[in-house]
Nucleic acid binder design. Structure first.
Length: 881
RNA sequence: GGGCGUAUAGCUCAGUGGUAGAGCACUACGUUGACAUCGUAGGGGUCGUAGGUUCGAACCCUGCUACGCCCACCA
C-alpha cells in the first residue's frame, strides 16, 4: 500500500537506471543519443537539466518502443576554462601564476579533473539521466588523443590544415590566440581623439581620428579616399608620426571612408585587421609595438616603453596635448571585442598559428542540410547554420595554453615542420628531408582548440579511427539535442568533421531547444541573482516534477520561462497520479496480465480504453516529432480531466458494494459481478498505461507506481483498433457527461444545492440513449442526483449535442436568471445558425468550398434549427409558468 | 547595414484555411473514504497594427509597430 502522503524523496533513491541503460539489443533498430559532453569543471545548471532531460525522454521512449538505444555520455576537457580555473585555485592556495612548470600544472589539472569530474556525473544520475555510464568517455583520454592526432594528420596531408602567419584575435591576459567564435562584442564608453599628422615641411597637417592613440607608433601610413577632394593634395606626400621623427606616406585607398572620422585614417598593419590588409595592398612595413601581454615594446619611443596599453594611451594623449597635436577629444560609445573566458579586450596580433581550411569542409556540410540529409528541428535554425557556414573563415585551432591535445607537429632546426602521428614518424620524415641521420626535432608547444575534439565526438565515442561494430551500427543513427548558442561551436563542426572523416552526416536530425529564463523572461545570471538551481528544485519537489516541468515547457522555437510555481503545479499532478494508485489499491484493482481491452463489456470501460489508446497515439506522434510539450499535455489531460474527473466517478458506485445492492434491489438488469471485475481490470490497465506513457518523462514515480500495480517491465503500450461497438459506447458516455454537466450547471444557476433531486425526462431522446440512461441510473444519482422518468413540475430545457432534453424540478424557484441565461443561449444558437445559413446562401461558397465542408454546414443548420425550435418552445413554457 | 524569431484570455503558452483552446490566476459553491497538493460550476479574447489574396484568414502574402536574438561594420 502506498503512503497517504506523496513524498518523492522517499523512493527516488531506490531506482538506478544503469542496468537498462547498458542493455544492447543487436536485433533491434539502432538509435543513439549523443550527450553534449559537459565541461569537467561544470556543475548542473537549469540549461543542462533541460537539455539532458529531453534527451533522456527520447532515449527512454525509444527503448520502450523497442529500439536498441545507445545513450553515450562523456566529459569535455574544456581547454582554456579548465586551465584558468585550476590556475585560479592554485593562486588562491598561494601558488603564483607562472611559477609552476608545465608538467606540474598539468599534473594539478589532472588531479583536479579526477576530483571534480564526477560531480556533474553524479548530478546527471540524480536527474535520472539514463546514459550508459560504462561507456563514459573523456575528450582527452588516450583513445581520443589517438583519434585527434590521426585526424589532424589526415587534414594536413589533404591540404586542409596549415600553419601560417596571420593576424588573429589575441587574448593578452591568457596569452593565447582565440577563434572568432570566442569573441564577445560589448558596447563600452570610449573616446575619439582627433590628431594632427604634420606634413614633413610642417606647412600643413592631416587630421586623423582614432580611438587607439597608443598605436600611432605602429603607424605605417595615413590613408585617404582617392575621391576625397579635401585630401587629394596630400596623396604621395609624407607626414610625421606624432611624438616621433618617423615619416610615413599618405596613400590613397578605398578603405578610407570619407564619412567616418575625419576621412583620413591611420594605417597600423600590426594592430588592426583592416589595416593589415591595407598594409599588404601597399606593401607597408608591419611594425609590432606590443608584446604578448599587450605591453609596449622597444619599437616605441623610450618614454612609452614597458607601458601597458591603457597607460600608454593616457600618456600618449597627454603628450599630444602638450605638443599641441591634439585637435579634439570626443566621448563615444563603441563596440569592443572581449575574450569570452578572460573578459579582457582582445588585441589583433600577428602570430604563427594553425588554421583549418574551413571553407572547404563547409561545402558538403551546407549541401547535407540543403539536400535534407540533416534536418534542424525547428527548421528555421538551419538559416543560422547556413549563414555561418557560407561566410566561414579559416578556423584558428592552435591555442597557446597547456591543457589540451598537443599539436602533432615537430620542427627542425631551420623551422621546417613535420606533421606525423608519432615522433618517430616525424623523425623519419626529417631524416629524409635533411638527408642526415641525426636531426633534432622540437614538438610544437601549442594545443588544439577544445572544439576540435568536440567536433569529432560522434565518431570518437564509437571507436574511430578503428572500424568498430558500434561505429558502423550507430554512426548517422544518432540524435543531437542542444541549444542554439552552440550551433556554430559544435553542431556545424560535428557535421563538417563528420562528413570529412566518415563520408556521411553523423545525425539526420538535430533538435534545438530554447533558453531557460526566469518567470519574467530574463536570462538567468549570477549577477542578476535569478539563477534557479535544478538540484534544489529536485530536492524540494522531486526530480520527476522538475523533469516534467521542463518537458512540458519545451515548445518548439521558444524560450522557456520557468518559476517554482510551475514545478509545484506539475508536482501536484504527480501527487494526483499517486492518489489514483492509492484509490486503485483500496478498491482491489490489480493489474491482470491477461486482461484483454477489446473484451470488456461495459460502456464506461470501453470509453476509457478508447481515450487511453487515443492518448497513446497522441504521445507517440508528439514524441516522434519532438513535441515534448504536446506529449506531456496529452497525458496530463487524459489522466486528470478524463480518467480522474470522469471515469473514476463513473465507476465509484460500481466499486462500492452498498450501491450495487441497492441497484439490484431496484431490479436493473446488469450483471454487477462481471461489471465490477471489468471495471477493476480496466482501472488497473489504464493506470499501467499511464505510468508507461509517463515513464520517459517521470521515470522515478512511474517505476514506483508500476511496481505498486504489479508490473515491472517498462514496455510501451500497444495499440488496438477501435470497433464500432466502442464508438457507440463513446457516444453514450459523452451524452451522459453533457447531461450531468448541464444539470449541475443549471442547479448552480438556480442557486440550488448540488444535492437537489431533479428529474430528467427520457421522452426527448432516441431509444438507445433511454436504455443507456436507465441501465446507469445509479451513476446519474451518484454524480448529479438525477432521477429518470418523471414529467411533472417546472421544466427546463437542456441542450445536449443535437437534441434538447427536459429537466424537471419539484420545488418552486426563481427562474428569472435562468430565463435570462437561456435567452442568451438561444441567441447564440441563432447566431450560429444564421452565419452557417448565410454561407450556404452564398453561391461561391457552394461552388468553391470542399464538398464535406458544405455538407457539414448543412448538417449544422439542421441540427441547430431543431435545437432552436425545441429550446424556444420550452423557454416560452418556462416564461409562462 | 544584413538576417532570424516572437506578438492569441490577467499570466504562461498550444492552435498552418471552415463554430477561438489549455494550464495557472480570478468569481461562486462545495470537505466525515483516492486526492484541499482537491472537487463542481462560471466569467474572461474585435488573435499587435494597416492593407492584400480567398466563398471564407489567428493561420497565406505585403507594409508597419514593439520586444528578443544572430551576423557584419565602426578611424
Amino acid at each position: 500500500m502506498l503512503d497517504k502522503v506523496f513524498d518523492p524523496r522517499s523512493f527516488e533513491g531506490n531506482f538506478s537506471f544503469e542496468v537498462e541503460a547498458s542493455l544492447r539489443n543487436p536485433n533491434a533498430e539502432p538509435y543513439m543519443v549523443l550527450l553534449p559532453p559537459p565541461n569537467v569543471t561544470g556543475s548542473l545548471h537549469i540549461g543542462h537539466a533541460l537539455c539532458y532531460t529531453l534527451q533522456d525522454v527520447l532515449a527512454r521512449y525509444k527503448r520502450m518502443r523497442g529500439y536498441d538505444v545507445l545513450f553515450q555520455p562523456g566529459l569535455d576537457h574544456a581547454g582554456i576554462v579548465t586551465q584558468l580555473l585550476v590556475e585560479k585555485q592554485l593562486y588562491e592556495s598561494g601558488i603564483e601564476k607562472g611559477t609552476l612548470t608545465k608538467d606540474k600544472l598539468l599534473k594539478e589539472i589532472w588531479y583536479w579533473k579526477e576530483q571534480s569530474g564526477c560531480t556533474i556525473l553524479d548530478q546527471l544520475k540524480i536527474l535520472g539521466i539514463s546514459c550508459d555510464f560504462s561507456r563514459l568517455r573523456f575528450t582527452l583520454d588516450e583513445d581520443s588523443k589517438r583519434a585527434v592526432t590521426k585526424l589532424f594528420v589526415k587534414l594536413f596531408r589533404d591540404g586542409l590544415l596549415r600553419r601560417g602567419e596571420r593576424m588573429v584575435s589575441w587574448d593578452p591576459v591568457i596569452c593565447t590566440a582565440v577563434s572568432d567564435l570566442e569573441i564577445i562584442e560589448k558596447e563600452v564608453d570610449g573616446h575619439m581623439w582627433h590628431i594632427k599628422y604634420m606634413l614633413e615641411d610642417k606647412s600643413d597637417f592631416i587630421p586623423v581620428a582614432t580611438t587607439r592613440p597608443e598605436t600611432i607608433f605602429g603607424d605605417a601610413a595615413v590613408a585617404v579616399n582617392p575621391n576625397d577632394q579635401r585630401y587629394r593634395k596630400f596623396i604621395g606626400k609624407s607626414v610625421r608620426v606624432p611624438l616621433t621623427d618617423r615619416l610615413i606616406p599618405v596613400i590613397a585607398d578605398k578603405h578610407a571612408d570619407m564619412d567616418k572620422g575625419t576621412g583620413a585614417v591611420k594605417i597600423t598593419p600590426a594592430h588592426d585587421f583592416n589595416d593589415y590588409e591595407v598594409g599588404r595592398r601597399h606593401k607597408l612595413p608591419v611594425i609590432d609595438i606590443m608584446d604578448e601581454h599587450a605591453i609596449l615594446n622597444d619599437n616605441v619611443p623610450e618614454l612609452f616603453r614597458k607601458l601597458e596599453r591603457f597607460e600608454a594611451r593616457k600618456k600618449v594623449v597627454e603628450f599630444l596635448q602638450k605638443t599641441e597635436l591634439l585637435i579634439k577629444e570626443e566621448k563615444i560609445k563603441h563596440l569592443l571585442p572581449f575574450g569570452d573566458r578572460s573578459n579582457s579586450i582582445l588585441e589583433p596580433r600577428i602570430t604563427k598559428q594553425w588554421f583549418v581550411h574551413a571553407e572547404k569542409l563547409a561545402q558538403p556540410a551546407i549541401r547535407a542540410v540543403e539536400e535534407g540529409k540533416l534536418q534542424f528541428v525547428p527548421t528555421h535554425w538551419q538559416n543560422l547554420y547556413f549563414e555561418w557556414l557560407r561566410n566561414i573563415r579559416p578556423w584558428c585551432i592552435s591555442r597557446q595554453i597547456w591543457w589540451g591535445h598537443r599539436i602533432p607537429a615537430w620542427y627542425g632546426p631551420d623551422g621546417q615542420v613535420f606533421v606525423a602521428e608519432k615522433y618517430e614518424d616525424a623523425l623519419k620524415q626529417a631524416v629524409v628531408f635533411y638527408g642526415k641521420n641525426q636531426v633534432e626535432l622540437v614538438q610544437d608547444d601549442d594545443v588544439l582548440d577544445t572544439w576540435f575534439s568536440s567536433g569529432m565526438w560522434p565518431y570518437i565515442t564509437l571507436g574511430w579511427p578503428d572500424d568498430t561494430d558500434e561505429l558502423r551500427r550507430y554512426y548517422s543513427k544518432m540524435v543531437v539535442v542542444t541549444g542554439f548558442d552552440i550551433i556554430f561551436f559544435w553542431v556545424a563542426r560535428m557535421v563538417m568533421m563528420g562528413i570529412y572523416a566518415m563520408d556521411n552526416v553523423p545525425f539526420p536530425e538535430v533538435y534545438i531547444h530554447g533558453l531557460v529564463r526566469d518567470a519574467k523572461g530574463h536570462k538567468m545570471s549570477k549577477s542578476r541573482g535569478n539563477v534557479i538551481d535544478p538540484l534544489k528544485l529536485c530536492e524540494k519537489y522531486g526530480t520527476d516534477a522538475v523533469r516534467y516541468t521542463l518537458t512540458t515547457l519545451a515548445s518548439p522555437g521558444r524560450d522557456l520561462k520557468i518559476d517554482e510555481q510551475s514545478v509545484e503545479i506539475n508536482r501536484n499532478f504527480l501527487t494526483k497520479l499517486w492518489n489514483v494508485v492509492r484509490f486503485a489499491q483500496m478498491n482491489g484493482c490489480v493489474y491482470n496480465n491477461y486482461f484483454d481491452p477489446s473484451a470488456v463489456d461495459n460502456a464506461f470501460s470501453k470509453w476509457i480504453i478508447v481515450k487511453v489508446l487515443q492518448t497513446v497515439k497522441e504521445v507517440e506522434v508528439a514524441l516522434d516529432s519532438y513535441r515534448f510539450d504536446e506529449a506531456t499535455k496529452a497525458v496530463y489531460h487524459c489522466i486528470w480531466s478524463t480518467f480522474c474527473d470522469w471515469y473514476l466517478e463513473f465507476i465509484k458506485p460500481v466499486l462500492q458494494q452498498s450501491a450495487i445492492d441497492e441497484e439490484r434491489a431496484e431490479g436493473y438488469n446488469l450483471n454487477y459481478t462481471i461489471y465490477k471485475k471489468d471495471v477493476r481490470d480496466t482501472t488497473a490497465w489504464a493506470i499501467v498505461q499511464f505510468v508507461r506513457l509517463l515513464y520517459p518523462i517521470a521515470p522515478f514515480i512511474s517505476k514506483k507506481l508500476s511496481g505498486e500495480m504489479g508490473v515491472m517491465e517498462m514496455s510501451w503500450p500497444s495499440l488496438t483498433t477501435v470497433t464500432p461497438a466502442e464508438q457507440l459506447a463513446v457516444e453514450h458516455v459523452e451524452f451522459l457527461q453533457e447531461l450531468i454537466t448541464s444539470v449541475r450547471s443549471l442547479k448552480q444557476c438556480l442557486h440550488l444545492p448540488a444535492s437537489e433531486k431533479v428529474y430528467v425526462s427520457l421522452n426527448d431522446m432516441e431509444e438507445h440513449y433511454q436504455k443507456f440512461l436507465q441501465d446507469h441510473a445509479t451513476i446519474l444519482r451518484h454524480m448529479a442526483h438525477i432521477e429518470l422518468g418523471t414529467t411533472e413540475g417546472m421544466s427546463f430545457p437542456i441542450a445536449i449535442n443535437s437534441t434538447v432534453v427536459q429537466m424537471f424540478l419539484m420545488t418552486q424557484v426563481d427562474v428569472k436568471s435562468k430565463i435570462e441565461q437561456l435567452r442568451q443561449e438561444l441567441t447564440n444558437l441563432e447566431k450560429a445558425k444564421n452565419s452557417a445559413t448565410a454561407r450556404l446562401a452564398n453561391e461561391e461558397f457552394l461552388s468553391k468550398a470542399a464538398a464535406e465542408v458544405v455538407e457539414e454546414h448543412k448538417k449544422r443548420v439542421v441540427s441547430l434549427d431543431a435545437k432552436i425550435q425545441k429550446m424556444s418552445t420550452l423557454l416560452r413554457n418556462l416564461e409562462m409558468a
